[in-house]
Design a protein around this nucleic acid. Structure first.
Lengths: 204, 204
DNA sequence: GAAGTTATTATACACTTGAATAATAGCGAC
DNA sequence: GTCGCTATTATTCAAGTGTATAATAACTTC
């Protein structure tokens, strides 16, 4: 007859725990398996609490999507050093753990599949994609300039679209069936491909 | 008090209708919105009929996934003509309707997101991916040979991985946010990129 | 055209879902 | 300490889920 004891967490902390639990459930059980109850279990709370922090389950899921995009782009956008190093790191980071793992691609795909259904998710996606591609475009612009081959923004845009596509495609494949590739193989292929695309060696 | 009238369809036909209705629902409402009842409405039958044709809803969904993969790979694998034409068509087909449309990518993503959850879907995915990539690898092998630059199968494998990644990535981007690109721009970028990757002009 | 087969409908069932409500226990202020 | 606030639990609810079963109407065969 006694209630279970609990811990009163600071608001921000508990919100983040719930979002993390949401993502865990989506990646493990899929969107339809990520029920309020399952998420609550994962977060170590009871189901009712979700509605204390979020207006609805859908809102929580949307915030979870924002978190995914942030975690996918954060590391890639924070590369540092000279242009060559940054380009090299950008490619390597996106094709290596923790960005490249099956959990990430599961989450990404789950949300992508809803972009057509839910306009809120569509907008979040669009922002994230453009931010990512623009970061890459700036990076390429710097790189080409440093190599003495400064290019127009239109040219950089085309390079960014192609390389973004390449990296995304390899990322998906690597995450879904990593065992089909040797260690580091995808990074190697990506590096060589980018060199060929730009017609420049990446090595400093 | 009267039952609705109905039409007794040939087995194969009705099965296909149900699968098509399943895909419609998944692309429009997402995996969790594709309920047996909704699918039945779309197919113009009642919910009970689903279990007359399939052992379970899950089995029907798995067969629907097979159908998606088949439709995505079918057109690409059936390119004809000389090696150059086939390579060119392969790229163009995958980045143009009907292969490149938002319905396709929604379906693809919905299933991809379940690959981690459902081993049956994982196996279907793996088969489809390898078949697709191997078709591309053969195509590249023929193309390089025709251009007098015959390459080892290892070399072709690396090219196939890269180009497959590139095409897949551009396909996703184009399907999700086609309005960010000009008409035919993605095909153009893909063609130029493949030329750069192979170091050969594609034009005959 | 009558009989038999079975694809299809209609209904019911047990369970899960997201959400609303009321009770309560943790924790800071005093 | 005890009071007050509210984060958290416990319980309930209506709607929706996949599935099972029985009745029936469409088509085939003779």
């Amino acid at each position: 007859m006694s209630r279970r004891s609990f811990h009163r967490a600071p608001e921000g902390e508990r919100r983040q725990e719930l979002i993390e639990a949401t993502l865990d459930c989506i990646s493990e059980f899929g969107l339809k398996g990520a029920t309020v109850r399952q998420i609550a279990v994962r977060a170590g709370v009871t189901a009712g609490l979700v509605r204390h922090y979020f207006d609805s389950k859908d809102q929580m899921v949307a915030e979870a999507y924002r978190a995914v995009i942030a975690s996918l782009t954060e590391k890639a956008k924070n590369v540092e050093g000279d242009p060559t190093t940054r380009l090299k790191d950008f490619i390597a980071i996106n094709l290596t753990e923790p960005v490249a793992d099956s959990r990430s691609v599961s989450l990404w795909a789950a949300f992508i599949s809803q972009v057509r259904v839910d306009p809120v998710l569509a907008e979040i996606h669009r922002e994230g994609y453009l931010a990512f591609r623009n970061a890459l475009q700036d990076l390429l612009s710097d790189f080409l300039a440093a190599k003495g081959r400064a290019a127009s923004s239109e040219e950089c845009r085309r390079y960014a679209i192609a390389i973004n596509g390449l990296v995304d495609g390899l990322w998906v494949e690597g995450c879904l069936a990593g065992d089909l590739f040797r260690d580091g193989e995808l990074v190697g292929i990506a590096m060589a491909s980018v060199e060929a695309l730009l017609g420049l060696p990446i090595e400093a």
